[in-house]
Amino acid sequence: MGHGGGGALSAELVEHLFAPAYGNDLLAGLADSTALTLAGTRLAFSTDSYVVRPLFFPGGSIGDLAVNGTVNDLAMSGARAAYLSCAFILEEGTDLSVVGRIAQAVGAAAVAAGVSIATGDTKVVDAGHGDGVFINTSGIGLIPHGVDIRPQRATPGDLVIVSGPIGMHGVAIMSVREGLEFGVEVTSDTAPLGGLVDAMLDVTPDLHTLRDPTRGGVATALNEIAAASGTGVLLHEHAVPVPEPVAGACGFLGLDPLYVANEGRLLAFVPRSHADAVLAAMRAHPLGAQAAVIGECVTEHPGMVVARTRFGGTRVVDLPLGEQLPRIC
């Protein structure tokens, strides 16, 4: 089941199975959302399905993720989400009060994100054929004039900014799902990023690339961008904000925080000349208060992500596989 993990195997599925079957180039961009032109208007369009376990976790629920995830995918092309669809697949026997709480969460998250749920659907599958509640959301939004944000635009000289501390969502989910106690409770970072992106676009429309590092974490997002643009990405390991509890949990579990999922963070590739101003605008926004420059695009090692370690050495940051396997002999 490594194919769902957001790593090399997922990319393979899209590239070799889905894209050829659909017979058009729209998926080839490998972006979170697709930019479409409809009657002269540039729209961003995106869909995502949510199968998270547990349904409720510190900091949010599947309902928050379903709204924020799609809103964020649109925001990553600079679009402000306007309308969402929301489809529930319920397993026979699921407690209706649970469904009710999720619906409430969806509504509240939509209000917070400034988006309207315009259409929906509900299906019920036999007991044993689902796992409680699955949600699919799709969304559309307008791409402002003069904005062209794509992974392909990352270019040597760009600085890489992360909007805040990483790894919190993944660790929060893992701790409740597996009953792990790390001493300090870690809450999910799930949040709608449309407002933050607006604040950044107010500084300059010339943001090159935005990405929300969800499944597969920062490492996967950076690898996808490096591969799509052909630029090398140099990460300054010590500059990456990893909260202490996340670092501790990852240490215990033998995981690398760079590969852990986030739901309310973004990575921005910004021309060096705009970086200071963009960073300042981000820090002025509540969701970007701890934004930091974590790396840069370089001409060396094209298409590869490399971390500069604290001791001045380098470490290749590859696409993850399904699981993190040890390599030490």
Binding site: E178, G179, L180, F252, L253, L255, E323
Partner: peptide, 13 residues
Amino acid sequence: LVERQLERGLACV
């Protein structure tokens, strides 16, 4: 944590 990890097979190969 390790006991729990072993019990659940979490990040265990």
